[in-house]
């Protein structure tokens, strides 16, 4: 599973795409993906918010992740 990274998420992970490591439990929902992220990168716990986008839409925690989905981490936005 590949996850697109932007803003501070890119700095925290140190890449622009995150590949969930094979030894992690494969996350089947948005909630599980967030859990994997904060275990591997506790810095995510310090952010003001942490959202996940699935197919370029904000996704609730119970959304099921499928192999073909485009998944992205959305750290606190700061446009304008």
């Amino acid at each position: 599973m590949k996850v697109l990274l932007f803003g501070i998420a890119k700095d925290i992970i140190g890449a622009s795409v995150f590949e969930v490591p094979a030894q992690s439990k494969y996350p089947s929902t948005v909630k599980e993906l967030k859990d994997v992220l904060v275990v591997l990168f506790p810095e995510f716990n310090k952010l003001s918010s942490l959202a996940i986008a699935v197919n370029s839409e904000y996704a609730d925690e119970n959304i099921i992740l499928r192999a073909e989905d485009e998944i992205a981490i959305i750290p606190p936005v700061s446009g304008g």
Binding site: F6, G7, K46, L47, V77, S78, G79
Partner: peptide, 26 residues
């Protein structure tokens, strides 16, 4: 403008002479 600032996935980094900061991240 208010809703854009709340919802649109755009990120702003402030660059100062000695550091840079992602705005609103923490």
């Amino acid at each position: 403008i208010d809703t854009l600032k709340e919802r649109v996935p755009i990120w702003k980094k402030e660059v100062f002479s000695n550091k840079s900061v992602w705005v609103s991240a923490h």
